[in-house]
Design a protein around this nucleic acid. Structure first.
Lengths: 355, 355
DNA sequence: ATTATTTGCGAAACCGGTTGCGTATAATCA
DNA sequence: TGATTATACGCAACCGGTTTCGCAAATAAT
């Protein structure tokens, strides 16, 4: 049975040393009230008996858990796993633990998760909101509990909280301009839903680039693709199958659509980049070994995670509210062959390697 | 300043309703001692005031945190992120929270992490041990604290604990036999270090297949590749550059070596699969869009995570020790073009899709 | 030598739930 | 009607730390 051997408590330590519980506490916390001699005696005994202050007891009094909740829509995703890596790198240095929650892009799950977070188990929350639209009463309630909140990447624009993101508008613009400069005459933009504000911003940047080229009604070049694995392939094949109307350049705003695009082109025998040039918002480590290597708008996922963690840890440690602070980490254009660039190896790019 | 609005406590609820703290507790826990009328009154007031039992207070008494620690060597990794997805899927149903820790394959980090886990903050630990060799005193100490431990994938053979893994020996054998059946005359095995028992088992399976073909000294066909991104590319290029000695079939036992293999072949102008056939232990979602599509030994990462979570949750909830229980989830051979198979789309394989 | 101050520690309250026990009131029984 | 048993709730201890306060002994100041 569950024996729970390590029951060394302050009380047992106190009895063993002929001291009081309070004295032990003060000694271990290096209080000035306790003599050096007693302190060393206590510290040694504590180490010997592998004493560890009980997490619940100390948390009950201090109201601090040294724990941060991280809510992501998905974890099998190069962006989010890199972001978590960045978060962990920072929090671990500061002695914080992290709880991971996956919303699976469902607003109901997100609400359910948030609700469990109001009992004091976490000192702060980092969140990348789910794709599914919905009110954000749950987020407001969380903040009403006095729990600091920081959004990363997918933010809720209308809430006053910390926000760490990339320059999506600019990146959308750069992606579209790049394809235009590569000689594309008909560039289109693939998105999932446009509920997500970051996707909307990318699209607006894309529109701006098209407007500069005096494209008539650029909104017509924006396509919403379902995220279901079967439907999306069919939708994309439909888009590419009509040779006359077919786009010769595609900006893909979500990494998930990479596989269906490549598959569709292969099935329809369309050559990338000769017949259609492609660039994708993506953090894929494998972009350089795809055929052809995939040009990407690479988001600084690790840095975004790290900055978000720094923001929330500082807010917690200094008891300061985050006053709608916004941090922008710029994305990077990595030109590879899929958009007609040279096929150089970009494996060792700064900030991408995680090994 | 941090206002902590939601200070609804049992005491405040009690005062508001003219009852005692104990009565509130019993009412909320549906005790038979309390009348229906009182119960409904209390429950309604609790909901109205958004009362949540304090995590520390309840944990202090119950000695349960409803939290599981998950320690992985890396998170930007398709296997581990899938495994975490599996873990989360199960634990979330059971009302457990999960803490994520990343050892970055460093034994020192692993020890440090484990040490912080003995204070009662978690009810159990799931771990995939780090690659770096070392004693496992820290794991024993954890178990001595009465905290259930379950290994997944990378296990410590010598410890008596729960273990969930795949059939590495069998998989290594199957991979090698597949290449041999595809006509390879000189098959070799790439590994990182052989400290990891799972890599050793894969190698032993590989050796068995070669022995069956009466290969002389098959151990000579086993190569250890450094994991550093620059060194490994050079080492692999060296291995492939000598056209006479060059292997015509390669079993890659770690996913990390996929990129350098593809890059090396491209640089040396070696055709996959005509000149060298390749199969890799991997959970890459992008295997099918690599060029050529990569044959894989696909580990049931999601199932492994799910089973590990089930094992530890059951152990916790039933107060039973895990008596060296072993669960084996078999891997799957996915033949694609890199090993000379047909280029079929294996996107929708059972158990792989995470969308 | 006497008073003032510092030093080192113990006692007890407190954090917010949980739980065993005691008891007053109501319901049941003889 | 009086004794017995349920019913419904309050009281207080407890979980394991933290912290305030008080006090005795040691040291310093006068």
């Amino acid at each position: 049975m569950n024996s729970l051997q390590n029951n060394t408590t302050m009380q047992s330590l106190a009895e063993r040393l002929g001291l009081s519980k309070g004295t032990i506490s003060k000694a271990l916390n290096d209080s000035h009230e306790i003599s050096i001699a007693t302190k060393t005696k206590v510290v040694e005994a504590a180490r010997e008996l592998r004493y560890m202050p009980n997490h619940f007891a100390s948390g009950l009094k201090s109201r601090k858990s040294k724990t941060i909740a991280v809510i992501v829509p998905e974890i099998v995703d190069s962006f989010f796993s890199l972001a978590i890596n960045g978060i962990e790198t920072f929090t671990q240095k500061e002695g914080y633990h992290i709880n991971i929650y996956i919303s699976h892009d469902l607003i109901s799950k997100e609400k359910e998760i948030i609700r469990t977070l109001c009992d004091g188990r976490v000192d702060g929350v980092l969140i990348s909101v789910c794709r599914e639209a919905g009110d954000n009463a749950h987020l407001k309630e969380l903040m009403d509990c006095g729990i600091p909140l920081v959004f990363f990447d997918r933010v809720a624009d209308e809430l006053k909280a910390g926000k760490v993101m990339t320059d999506d508008f600019e990146a959308g613009y750069v992606a579209a301009r790049h394809l235009i400069e590569q000689g594309c005459k008909k560039v289109c933009f693939l998105s999932s839903s446009l509920c997500l504000s970051i996707l909307k911003k990318r699209m607006e940047g894309f529109i701006k680039a098209l407007n500069e080229k005096n494209v008539i009604d650029p909104q017509k070049n924006v396509h919403q693709i379902p995220l279901d694995d079967i439907e999306n392939l069919e939708t994309i094949k439909l888009l590419l199958s009509n040779a006359d109307e077919r786009p010769d350049g595609i900006v893909i705003s979500v990494e998930l659509l990479t596989i269906p695009i490549y598959l569709a082109c292969k099935e329809l025998n369309i050559n990338i980049p000769d017949e259609v040039k492609i660039i994708c918002f993506s953090n894929l480590l494998y972009a350089s070994v795809l055929s052809p290597p995939l040009s990407t708008i690479t988001q600084p996922a690790f840095e975004i995670g790290q900055s978000a963690a720094r923001l929330i840890c500082n807010s917690i440690d200094r008891f300061t509210e985050i006053d709608d602070e916004k941090i922008i980490c710029p994305s990077r254009l990595d030109i590879r062959k899929s958009s007609g660039g040279n096929d150089v190896h970009l494996l060792k790019e700064e900030g991408l390697s995680v090994f």
